[in-house]
Design a protein around this nucleic acid. Structure first.
Length: 317
DNA sequence: GCGTCCAGGTCTACC
DNA sequence: GGTAGACCTGGACGC
């Protein structure tokens, strides 16, 4: 285990409303940067690669939802230059989406029979960016045709065996493996852990992203369709995954979310789920247009709340 | 105990 | 261009 020293602290002032807890520790359990991060009593210990360097963070809230202030303590191997400090600040500002304006989405959501409940339940939750394009794409691959428990096991295997372990601030956090690390492995090394047929795709994806490929931030600068085209050119990435990991965001409907949104839109879930995916995606885009991704995000993180408010069971295991 | 089905898609061979 | 079937694996289910 590599130990990291506290090097500097800075503060971010997100655009309100900004609920720190809901933003960095999403209710459905989606990690911010790595599945091995620690969230305890309003603080998050996490780690990610910024410009190729492992960067450990303790994030906490020093403000409120309406007057937000985020404290970031940064732990690094070596003393950072001023440019390096600024790069960390810029990266975190972007990934925590501190400039996101929720106003227009909330205005529309409060007039929507479904969303008006969930924007109250998750008031101030911002969207966030992933650790990296590789991390996001790998998750999309691992979620394929496997039950939740198996997804969890595959994710734990990848991080525990191939992610670097960082010790800082009294915590141990294992970071998501880099594409360079996975690209250096044999497919057999990945197959051993029960990744099955996904192992081949993950290794090919790592090779593609370790060499010449755009970053998540690069894709954001491209037009939506061009970003989508670039994602579809990656091995193992199809329509659903491209919608899920595209920085421009779509309305990513798979068989699981089709069941959820099928119940919300049409009052049924299990009826020919695979056949209704296109219809459900079209209905979501028709209802919510440019805000479809935010609607998706709020709903999947508020299944229990919505089930209670709407008097139907949309929560799944 | 055993066989079958299915799970948060994608690729590819075949027509 | 469209589509059926294969793909790892393990738990749930019916018998």
């Amino acid at each position: 285990m590599v130990r990291f020293m506290h090097r500097f602290t800075f503060y971010l002032q997100p655009r309100p409303p900004y609920n720190f807890d809901l933003t960095v520790h999403k209710p459905a359990g989606w990690p911010l940067f790595t599945p091995a991060e620690v969230f305890d009593e309003g603080a998050l210990w996490t780690a990610l690669h910024i410009d190729g360097q492992l960067t450990c963070l303790k994030l906490s809230s020093e403000g409120t939802i309406e007057r937000p202030l985020v404290q970031a303590k940064v732990f690094l191997r070596e003393k950072p230059s001023p440019d390096r400090k600024e790069a960390v600040r810029q990266a975190l500002s972007c990934k925590l989406n501190i400039t996101q304006d929720l106003g227009a989405f909330y205005y529309r959501a409060r007039r929507d029979p479904i969303l008006r409940h969930t924007v109250d339940n998750l008031y101030g939750m911002h969207d966030t960016d992933p650790e990296s394009l590789f991390a996001n794409a790998t998750l999309a691959l691992l979620f394929r045709t496997a039950p939740f428990q198996r997804n969890k096991e595959m994710i734990e295997y990848l991080t525990n065996n191939f992610g670097e372990l960082a010790g800082f601030c009294g915590k141990k956090v294992r970071v998501w493996p880099t594409p360079e690390k996975i690209a250096s492995l044999d497919v057999a090394d990945l197959e051993k852990c029960g990744l099955g047929y996904r192992a081949k795709y993950i290794q090919q994806l790592a090779v593609a992203l370790a060499s010449d490929s755009p970053s998540f931030e690069d894709l954001r600068q491209l037009p939506q369709n061009e970003a989508r085209r670039r994602l579809l050119s990656l091995p193992g990435i199809g329509n659903y995954s491209a919608d899920l990991i595209n920085p421009h965001k779509g309305f990513p409907i798979d068989t699981w979310s089709a069941e959820v949104f099928g119940k919300l839109f049409f009052g049924h879930g299990r009826r020919d789920v695979r056949e209704t995916i296109d219809d459900i995606r079209a209905e979501g885009l028709r209802r919510w247009g440019d805000y479809a991704w935010m609607a998706f995000l709020y709903i999947v993180h508020d299944l229990e709340g919505l089930s209670r408010e709407l008097g139907i069971s949309i929560a799944t295991e």
